[in-house]
Design a protein around this nucleic acid. Sequence first.
DNA 1: TTTATTTTTTAACATTTGTAAAATGTTGCC
DNA 2: GGCAACATTTTACAAATGTTAAAAAATAAA
Lengths: 188, 188
Amino acid sequence: MIEQLRNIAVFTSLSDDSLHEISKHIEYVKYKKGTIIIHADKIEPYFYVLEKGIARAYCDGENQQITFWFGQSGNVLFSFNSYINNRPGYENVELLENSTLIRIRLNDLFLLYKDNLEITNWGRKIAEQELIATERRLIDRAFKGAAERYQEFIDQSPELIKRVALKHIASYLGVTQVTLSRIRATCK
Amino acid sequence: MIEQLRNIAVFTSLSDDSLHEISKHIEYVKYKKGTIIIHADKIEPYFYVLEKGIARAYCDGENQQITFWFGQSGNVLFSFNSYINNRPGYENVELLENSTLIRIRLNDLFLLYKDNLEITNWGRKIAEQELIATERRLIDRAFKGAAERYQEFIDQSPELIKRVALKHIASYLGVTQVTLSRIRATCK
DNA sequence: TTTATTTTTTAACATTTGTAAAATGTTGCC
DNA sequence: GGCAACATTTTACAAATGTTAAAAAATAAA
């Protein structure tokens, strides 16, 4: 069981002891493509790790959906506002492929944070890494044009380009699908 | 000393014991308006708490500076990449007023994270709160026009509007100063 | 106060991106 | 295959924002 966890990117830094603690509380689940596993306006009680599959987080607008996050194998996945503030979240998370996930109840995870220094530091680093990545994107939007952001997305996430619908990538990059089409037509 | 720390927003949640641990390592410093206390491309060894004053974080571009963060009394302030990845940072932080700050060496803070569960959880929550705020801004840029973002900035940060140059606020909102001027002219 | 410096506003024009709708391409299913 | 549903591209036009430059206003310095 512990060996199985250690194969997953986000768990590699943890000691056997901590992995053992975590393994007492986890559960494997399997969902089909299209399943919404996190719902906006709900307190979602689970913290997930995506073992296999792809996911996107998005917000619903009046006549659009904005995708602002993609997850791949080894990434963690949770309702930000449920996890951080114990309040209903603002985002939905949809699985874009048939996926397998590991999950742990937030309550159980918080109990581990209360007792286990290593796991708490692990949780701290997860938040920090997400933070720095999110801030980078905010800055990139100011300095780089949409075409350049698209090119970097291809370079950094070649898997996603192949497997994710362009309309989702367009909103992730902060442009409409029409604009993304124009960009793609230009650099061909 | 501990009472003094407890008056600062970011420390209010900590126990006397933890504040006492922290107080062993802190130092009060005072800088003039215009001082750059965090430099891009350097590993900056301090974690600061702004006791009094206002600060902004910005990146330098070819012919522009982009401000992407403001700090007020009680906020924490550090080179993201130094703190998180022990690498030179991408941002400068400038004090916009004469300010007093508390600082602690990152090395000392990391030692506390290694031993003290409460302080580690405090560090985790700092990252989480920054994360959720940054993500909100990213989403807001997709859903809200520049005029609406400006109005919300006024509502949520009335202090900053009074005390910060509009050119900095413009880039924080993701528009040019010319556009911000037009927005201000319209809603007058 | 007077001058110098910086910040903010205004103007004219160029560019980018958005909107809406149609055309084309793709996928999956009966 | 052929239909239905969905995804992507293309087109024409509209709206928003950027660029550049200059004037006006505000602030700081002498």
